[in-house]
Design a protein around this nucleic acid. Structure first.
Lengths: 152, 152
DNA sequence: TATTGTTATACTCTATAACTATA
DNA sequence: TATAGTTATAGAGTATAACAATA
């Protein structure tokens, strides 16, 4: 296997490890990845319309109804009226939901710190910059590919 | 957000981009990630028992039955008798399945090369080594955590 | 008695389509 | 007429339990 492939495989592998661990923790809290995604969005931005949440998650509005139902039932979120549009609903986190998100953010910070324990600032900066370059290059490649699709 | 967190987020983000792209390609071939995982295992190791595939994928044997059924129906794999155990079945890739796996491996190589276009060998080696260190450290942390769970 | 695979069944995640209330 | 959300329904992915054939 080429060195380039090894690098890409390492990224995928590491990401898989971290995600699997997170999902295991969430499962213990009876939270699926989708439900958690809704909570991150609302925690980050404050009360949001279900429509907006669906757009950001690239999921159907109908499905957001289900996810919010689940969160409300678990006491993590609640629906409130929209101040100017009586059709719409604003999803907010309950106190319990907010505190859960804060705990998760803290754990995320601690994990990141523990993983890079002993690294120099220069190492962290270099690897981060390289990964940014990869993501940037990836976006360019995808844009090229879809332009070709369009032309074909 | 701390630099450490940024680094971890970059890894997760990049992995997400690559996986989403792969899934889109697979979808066009009517291949789900699970079905593809079965094919990778059989392509890498040669004919395997469904039992072994289930263990490696960490999935129920019953579910492997479904996945292999789908692959057989698509003409990508076939079941053959086990030479010494008449209960068991050996899953093999058809010619079509093998050639599909080879195409995918080639695309994977090309993507890795394109992403690191212009990088020096030293850069590739350094970033790979750092990611290996992260994965190693992650495994240690997880082992510690599960030891604590056991003690609790 | 233990193991390989399968039939039967059910639960979760997600989608499409039709509908209600409001804009 | 268009939009926000919901009811109804369906399909994919995966699990558990019971059972067959074989070890």
């Amino acid at each position: 296997m080429s060195r380039q492939q090894q690098l890409l495989d390492r990224i995928l592998h590491l990401s898989h490890l971290v995600q699997a661990d997170q999902e295991r923790e969430l499962e213990a809290l009876d939270l699926t990845p989708s439900r958690t995604a809704v909570m991150w969005i609302v925690h980050r931005d404050g009360p949001r319309m279900q429509r907006d949440i669906a757009a950001e998650m690239d999921v159907t509005p109908r499905h957001v109804t289900t996810l919010v139902d689940d969160l409300v039932e678990a006491g993590l979120a609640y629906r409130g009226p929209h101040p100017s549009d009586r059709r719409a609903v604003l999803v907010s986190l309950s106190e319990k939901g907010t505190s859960l998100m804060e705990t998760m953010a803290l754990q995320h910070r601690e994990l990141a710190d523990a993983l890079t324990d002993g690294w120099s600032d220069a190492d962290i900066a270099l690897v981060t910059a390289r990964l940014d370059a990869l993501a940037e290059r990836f976006s360019v490649l995808m844009a090229d590919a879809s332009r070709e699709d369009g032309a074909a």
